[in-house]
């Protein structure tokens, strides 16, 4: 899910940085408008830890091996803090494990950050569309949908970028076939991430529900 250095053209890398910069600025502005912007920093730091370590947890889903991302979970719990948190996590993943790269930090931020923000809004929809449901069921269901959707969208953006930027000297058909195989392996992963997100949200809702309301 992380695009390493040297895979995409330089223009894509620079474009990624520009758009990531704009979204980071927008996210920080939204955070700054809160009553106490510092309030969400501890949980953002803790979930950045989870995001950072998640890429080390590999799941053997034949025919590939994939790793957890947890961007949907960050979106549900952190809201607008999720984007800067993911960016910081990606930076440490790149310099520590070599997952991704510094030249592609911007584009990887978009791949994982935009779905996280959308997951946050999807999770918030429970207040509109989940009213008919029992509160716990609404929490669990919308968290599952947000987690699954977020990982699925990240995978789609990643593979679209990879396919669009296949260098002309490579065998495009072979690369496309490999990409589709890996994309299929991400379908079960999306369901696993959705389940993880639902489990965490239900746990938080039981032990510290204010965490999900943005009241740390």
């Amino acid at each position: 899910m992380h695009i390493p250095d040297g895979i995409v053209p330089v223009q894509i890398g620079i474009g990624g940085y520009v758009v990531t910069g704009l979204i980071t600025w927008y996210s920080l502005r939204q955070i700054n408008r809160m009553k106490d912007p510092m309030q969400g920093v501890p949980k953002a730091a803790l979930l950045t830890t989870a995001f950072f370590v998640a890429s080390l947890i590999h799941l053997p889903i034949p025919p590939a091996s994939v790793h957890l991302v947890l961007n949907g979970m960050l979106g549900c719990v952190l809201g607008y803090y999720a984007f800067p948190a993911i960016l910081i996590g990606l930076f440490f993943q790149a310099v520590t494990f070599g997952h991704g790269g510094l030249s592609t930090l911007g584009i990887n931020g978009l791949i994982m950050g935009i779905p996280a923000l959308l997951a946050y809004h999807l999770f918030q929809l429970r207040q509109t569309f989940g009213r008919q449901l029992k509160p716990r069921l609404a929490f669990g269901l919308f968290a599952f949908l947000a987690g699954t959707f977020s990982l699925g969208l990240s995978a789609l953006i990643f593979f679209t970028i990879v396919i669009v930027t296949i260098p002309s000297n490579l065998d495009a058909a072979t690369e496309r076939a490999a990409v589709f195989t890996l994309l299929l392996a991400h379908i079960p992963l999306a369901l696993i991430e959705g389940t993880f997100t639902a489990m965490l949200v239900l746990f938080l809702e039981r032990v510290k529900p204010e965490l999900l309301q943005g009241e740390w």
Partner: peptide, 21 residues
């Protein structure tokens, strides 16, 4: 060691801001 350092740094940040409250 690198992973532990980063994790400790992030948890330290969380604890720092938590205590400041």
């Amino acid at each position: 060691v690198m992973t532990a350092s980063v994790v400790w740094g992030l948890i330290g940040t969380a604890l720092f801001f938590w205590r400041r409250k």
